[in-house]
Nucleic acid binder design. Structure first.
Lengths: 98, 98
DNA sequence: GGCTTATATAAGCGCAAACGTATACCAGTG
DNA sequence: CACTGGTATACGTTTGCGCTTATATAAGCC
């Protein structure tokens, strides 16, 4: 699994959104997704860990998750050339438009 | 399938890359992925069409594919808030680093 | 009209993702 | 030490993606 697939999952994007606000314990993140069970969220966190999008530090018996900046930057690097593309085409979508 | 899942597939990102250079016929795109069969590429193009990342126009018996700017912009909109995040954290990764 | 070229769809298969239930692993607390 | 709370892993199941082979559709050409 790479960064793109990891970020493609809505629940994982939800987790990333929360971690962008501030660091959170695994428990808080579990509570933020009431439709999922604790193991399900734990596995999403593992995926985010493995692709380098988040990092964990232990705090007693809890685990505190934090966003890792460089992970998302890889997606941003990919998008960058396209950004130029739509900046050119957006104002004047088609030259041959009547 | 949404834009994120569509862009998560490496072969589809390859196709988007080619279409960012210039419009291409379906046949050119098929030839650009020698490890895949023609139907496989055709299905990838269908996915990209359905999520609004590309558009097609017929040219005789060929189909010419073109990149649609607004599709990728939706991913960019999602990334934007995170960009601020790593701009803040990248220069000084951790305050408590020894 | 018949034949070829270009592209899309259909059918079927294998595999990996995502989930829930059950369980293991620690760390704290009495 | 026994027990509880917080988190991760194991396991089995379902579901959907991506692939190939085979076929349909449609345009161009003789």
């Amino acid at each position: 699994m790479d960064v793109f697939e990891a970020a493609a999952e809505p629940n994982r994007r939800h987790l990333l959104g929360l971690l962008a606000e501030r660091d959170r314990t695994a428990g808080e993140l579990v509570d933020s997704l009431p439709t999922l069970t604790q193991p399900a969220v734990s596995r999403h966190l593992r995926v985010l860990r493995e692709v380098g999008l988040v990092e964990v530090r232990p705090d007693g018996q809890r685990r505190i998750y934090a966003l890792k900046p460089d992970g998302l930057q890889r997606i941003d690097d990919w998008i960058t050339p396209y950004r130029r593309f739509w900046r050119d085409h957006l104002a004047a979508p088609r030259l041959e438009t009547p």
